[in-house]
């Protein structure tokens, strides 16, 4: 695959040391190249990348609000089309909150209308920018500042919202999950997303040192553990065709993933077993 040596997301940005979100953006932009317009939703990525009068973006970039990135991108795409600039790629980077919660309506509208754009949800599984509050994408059992564990609580009591399948239900030509820890897989998917005519959605898992509670050096390792334990599955849905794109050779115990993070530290063995059997059920169905 042709990827650029150039960096389209400059250093000097204000992300925490070891931030997984910026790795995702760097990799995606290396595939998409300079003829790309990026739109961000409010969230970590937007805040850390454009502290006025500076910007980390080497390509045109726009941010308006938290919940409307897909709608802004719809306007950008339509406007470029109206000027005959159809060779310019429009890519959105929305956090899991900006995507699965507050921005879901705007995203649904944009997907259904068929705009030719790529929507990448960078999923760190909580509202990190505002201090680790739970989102619809927060996994079962995670302790966040609005789903804290306590005497009466084991943390988040709902399973993670299945965003990629919600997107697939829109019948868009390309939907995929990805992880920053599997860059070839992710970048291949970005490439496909760029080549497909119409909307494409990529749900990118991105470990967050601050929100998940682990040593920043372990960002890639955490993403890997998620996939190797079957907690996060890499697949794509091309024109309705579902395909797992990566299968761990030997699925590892979910505990390895859970125990590496502070947000799951409070879980009892029983709760961890419950999570393991949930993961098993999905993996068995998918032959992982």
């Amino acid at each position: 695959m042709e990827i650029s040596d150039k960096e389209f997301f400059a250093p000097g940005h204000r992300a925490c040391a070891g931030c997984g979100a910026t790795i995702g953006v760097r990799l995606a932009l290396k595939v998409l190249g300079e003829n790309t317009v990026a739109i961000s939703a409010t969230g970590c990525l937007e805040v850390i990348s454009t502290p006025y009068p500076e910007t980390a973006w080497e390509i045109p970039w726009m941010h308006v609000a938290f919940e409307n990135a897909a709608a802004v991108a719809s306007g950008v795409e339509a406007a470029l089309k109206s000027q005959g600039k159809t060779d310019t790629t429009v890519v959105v980077f929305g956090g899991d909150g900006g995507t699965a919660d507050i921005g879901l309506q705007a995203l649904s509208g944009a997907m259904e209308r068929g705009h030719n754009l790529i929507y990448i949800c960078y999923d760190n599984e909580a509202y990190m920018n505002t201090g680790i509050q739970r989102s619809g994408a927060t996994p079962y059992g995670a302790s966040t500042t609005t789903s804290p564990h306590g005497k009466e609580s084991f943390g988040e009591d709902k399973p993670k919202k299945n965003m990629p399948m919600i997107m697939a239900a829109h019948g868009v030509p390309y939907v995929a999950t990805a992880s920053i820890s599997y860059p070839e897989d992710f970048m291949k998917k970005v490439k496909k997303a760029a080549e497909v005519e119409g909307p494409a959605y990529i749900h990118l898992q991105q470990p967050c040192t601050t929100g998940w509670g682990y040593n920043p050096a372990k960002t890639i390792e955490l993403g890997r553990l998620a996939v190797e334990t079957g907690s996060w599955i890499l697949y794509e849905i091309e024109e309705g065709e579902f395909k797992v794109t990566y299968r761990p050779i030997q699925r590892r115990a979910v505990n390895e993933y859970l125990n590496a993070q502070k947000r799951f530290k409070h879980l009892t063995d029983l709760e961890k077993e419950r999570i393991q059997s949930h993961v098993d059920a999905i993996c068995i169905e998918l032959k992982i």
Binding site: V64, A71, V72, S74, V76, A79, A106
Partner: peptide, 16 residues
């Protein structure tokens, strides 16, 4: 799909 998106899309388009 909403006025919120109408004005947001206006802003995106105007941005180009």
């Amino acid at each position: 799909e909403s006025e919120h998106s109408a004005i947001s899309a206006c802003l995106g388009a105007s941005g180009t």
